[in-house]
Design a protein around this nucleic acid. Structure first.
Lengths: 243, 243
DNA sequence: TCAAAAGTGTTCCGAATACACCCATGC
DNA sequence: GCATGGGTGTATTCGGAACACTTTTGA
């Protein structure tokens, strides 16, 4: 697969043979966010192998030789959650020379948003345990995963202000107060209920359903869903989402 | 350097030997933006080697075995522009299986902002020519560089709205109308002069100097500089920049 | 004196905020 | 009834947009 041609595509100043440049390991790590009980959570695994045996870590894997980066992330997500069509997004690549004890492994960081209600993460040979952690009560992590996780969170918090991805954390049908809870957890701030409602409704991106909550000890709330088609159509015309 | 341990850090489902996962090439590509004559420009090189001989391309290079990703980008920028302390930022990593004709090479994309007034880019063995192109008059590019360039531009346009990086395209001392020109070119839109002034001045991030333009056929404009210290101090207190 | 760009002030409008209040349900 | 959260209306404030106007320089 790798034909050799020492003059190709790098500065002439260095005298290293071309083959020395093809010994990188490549992995993807997926920071999986969920939402439950008014707080933001992250799915972590407890490692079942050295290095960092028994340490908590962000789920990830080496990239296969004939696999795109996004496919790799998608594969990890499906393995771990059993879900398809999960929202995920590449956010940063980490390549410190000494970041991996086994060799020069570059990792591409992804974050992902899942609806925690409809899946049970499962342990496997490479992960002794899989568990949701509140974003404010994280265990120590192996590798450079603390840095990766914090950067994922920072990127998510930026993204969430300009694109309507908060919905990915909720079931298809949700109430406006649930949506408010998601944004309060994501951004770690409080919103005024009437104003939040007005803002969301004025965007005209959520559709009211002819359905309400049931079995609640108060007036049942109306259910809504997110109108992705309308958003996509509008995005083409340069209209954006801002919170 | 690469100790072998087939069980480490990847899903048990695959049966490929560990060594197969350490044959990635790794490069960085730097999309260098500049500003001149009211328009946004990109610095491209004309390749002096196969593949894509004579094609225009984004400057880039393979990452050295003992080199961090950021160092690699920094090295490319210094080689090409001769400048130090250039603003640059990683924005996306491109890893399509077939993106590089020579083998599996993953590239980390960076964009960079430079002051075009104080440097002359120089050709070298790996680049027949180096030239600034108006962002609206780009030549066809080799590899997947069109995609990389467009993504760099999109990321820059987002970033520029929330962080005061437009100053990196201007000399230390600039007029407010020059600053307006930068933002108009970056965002491809027009601002109202009085309102733009008010907004910038109200942020209190530019300091008026006791100096004015000279040799202009109209009332000379006051010169300002960007107060990075004040911005950094304020950033810690969660106060942000928004245009 | 005229052109060209610097620089200021004022009005208007819409969006964000604060907050008071009423409604429906389970117990 | 009453606790709980759902849901609505209004008054106020603040920032952005539009735009008219004055100032200073070189030629």
């Amino acid at each position: 697969m790798h034909k050799k041609n020492p003059d190709i595509y790098f500065l002439s100043e260095n005298n290293l043979p071309f083959s020395d440049f093809l010994h990188f390991g490549m992995s993807t790590d997926c920071v999986i966010f969920g939402y439950k009980d008014k707080s933001l959570r992250v799915l972590l695994i407890q490692r079942g192998a050295e290095p960092y045996l028994d340490n908590w870590a962000i789920p990830g894997d080496l990239v296969y030789p004939e696999e795109d980066l996004d496919s790799s992330a998608d594969r990890i997500l499906q393995h771990l959650t059993g879900l398809e069509n999960i929202y995920f997004e590449q956010f940063h690549t980490f390549g410190r020379v000494d970041r991996h004890p086994v060799g020069r492994v570059i990792t591409v960081g992804y974050y992902s948003l899942v609806r925690t209600d409809n899946h049970k993460p499962v342990a496997s040979t490479w992960a002794k345990e899989v568990k949701w952690f509140d974003i404010n009560e994280l265990p120590p992590l192996g590798f450079d995963h603390e840095e990766i996780l914090q950067k994922a969170l920072a990127n998510l918090r930026k993204k969430v202000r300009t694109e309507p991805i908060g919905f990915e954390l909720l079931p298809e049908k949700f109430t406006l107060l649930e949506l408010q809870g998601v944004y309060e957890a994501l951004l770690n701030m409080r919103f005024d209920k009437p104003n939040f409602r007005k803002k969301i409704l004025s965007m005209d991106l959520v559709t009211p359903l002819n359905e309400v909550e049931s079995n609640v000890a108060h007036r049942p709330a109306k259910l809504f869903n997110f109108d992705k088609e309308r958003y996509d159509a509008r995005k083409k015309n340069e209209i954006s989402f801002e919170l």
